[in-house]
Design a protein around this nucleic acid. Structure first.
Length: 195
DNA sequence: TTATGGATCTTCT
DNA sequence: GAAGATCCATAAA
């Protein structure tokens, strides 16, 4: 498949805007020449202010410094002793905001994803932030990589123009600032982690 | 069908 | 030393 990378300007604009624009786009991973890709169906925004849940809320640290970098970088962090999560850095340099990719709809490389995930059910391959990292072999090595330039991982335009409704709701799996309406997903998509 | 707890380890206090 | 932007198996209902 031929993937057309999004423009550099795609990553500009507010974090919420980018979070919404990411829905329907394709996350493309080139793993040793093998293409693994999926449509982004669920995202979550993490802001630079008034958002206690964001890693950036405590200020710049060794762990979260990529969030404070330029828009379009990949912020990958490790949590719960066993899981990685993948974020797209947004906003101005020095601000510390990002969009967490929460779920994908698998498109290409499904057999390889099944192998990495040790699962055969298509619907549970990438319907969660840690799951999609496992399925696409995303780990700390990709932290800080530039999605605007990297050939290992990038965001592409979807090949089909489609209409879908975006549902806005509160975040899940988190205790702080849980009332903020910063979670976005494609309505009635089977690969969203949770309704 | 929903509820609960264990896995497991990096980062920050 | 404690908590964590999660997942999954198992238990209860």
């Amino acid at each position: 498949m031929n993937y057309k990378r999004v423009n550099h300007s795609f990553f500009q604009g507010s974090t919420e805007d980018v979070a919404k624009k990411l829905l329907g786009k394709i996350l493309v991973r080139n793993y040793n020449g093998k293409i693994l890709s999926g449509k982004i169906v669920e995202t979550e925004a993490y802001l630079d202010e008034n958002d206690l849940a964001s890693h950036s809320a405590v200020g710049l640290t060794e762990r979260n410094k990529v969030m404070f970098g330029e828009a379009g970088l990949a912020y990958v962090y490790f949590t719960y002793g066993m899981h990685y999560c993948f974020n797209v850095v947004t906003g101005e340099e020095g601000k510390g905001s990002a969009v967490l990719i929460r779920a994908l709809e698998p498109l290409e490389g499904i057999e390889l994803m099944k192998k990495f995930r040790q699962k055969n059910d298509l619907h549970i391959l990438t319907n969660g932030p840690a799951k999609l990292c496992q399925a696409l072999k995303i780990d700390k090595k990709l932290n800080g990589i530039d999605l605007k330039k990297s050939s290992e991982i990038f965001i592409a335009e979807s090949e089909i123009e489609e209409n879908f409704e975006i549902v806005v709701t509160t975040r899940i799996g988190i205790e702080k600032s849980k009332d903020l309406p910063l979670r976005f997903y494609i309505k009635e998509n089977k690969f969203v982690s949770k309704k």
